[in-house]
Amino acid sequence: MPETVLETQGLTMRFGGVLAVAQVDFRLASHELRCLIGPNGAGKSTFFKCITGLLQPTEGQIFMRGRETTRWPAHQVASRGVGTKTQVPSVMDGLSVFENIWLAARRFLPPQAATRKADETITRLALGPIARGSPGRLAHGERQHVELGMVMAGDPWLVLLDEPAAGMTGGDVERLTEIVEEFTRTAAVVVVEHDMQFIRSIARIVTVFHRGAVLLEGHVDAVLADPAVRSVYLGQAA
């Protein structure tokens, strides 16, 4: 059985009286690609934020590669090699695309190596034509790619992608699928997504969130055929 790289036990997040994440037990194996689906407000993004340290969970524990990381600040989690793409693209608008990616690489590499890494990442993601401009002027889909470049430049072993396909056109989504496949060669990947087309094209194991808890977990075909899933998720989406 492959090594477990990410595990949560009884992870719970309350905002006042609202239970956003309820007792979630989650396990992810190395090099696994997992999709999280569920209706809006199911707690997927909150779950992500607890893992990355942007939110401190109310209860429960998080383990990464056997080490407990519960309540670690975000920068410490990231320094362990966790790359995160947030739901709304989080990029540095006042800097160029190159500088955005350079800063991500610089965290783990000396300056010159970071420059090489940034150039390499830009080539891999075909960001060349926009590399010298600011990401502030780009379309949503392109900003997503810039953010993916920042994740990639850090060479993470755990990649968390929150709605990477949002705002992307058909061609972009195809490119994204390739990028995600590429990530799985070196990392375990968790993707939160609404785009069913995209989910079907990449997913193997899918975890369904509903009202903060895990409703079901299983192979993509089985999950999407499940009547309970269809009623909570696909039913509402339609």
Partner: peptide, 24 residues
């Protein structure tokens, strides 16, 4: 220096800087 460039990055987006692993 790198410190200065990272500082400008933090000015632009603190959350992203933290997610890159910088101690803001």
């Amino acid at each position: 220096s790198s410190f200065g460039r990272i500082a400008v990055g933090i000015r632009e987006n603190e959350t992203r800087a933290a997610l890159m692993g910088y101690d803001v």
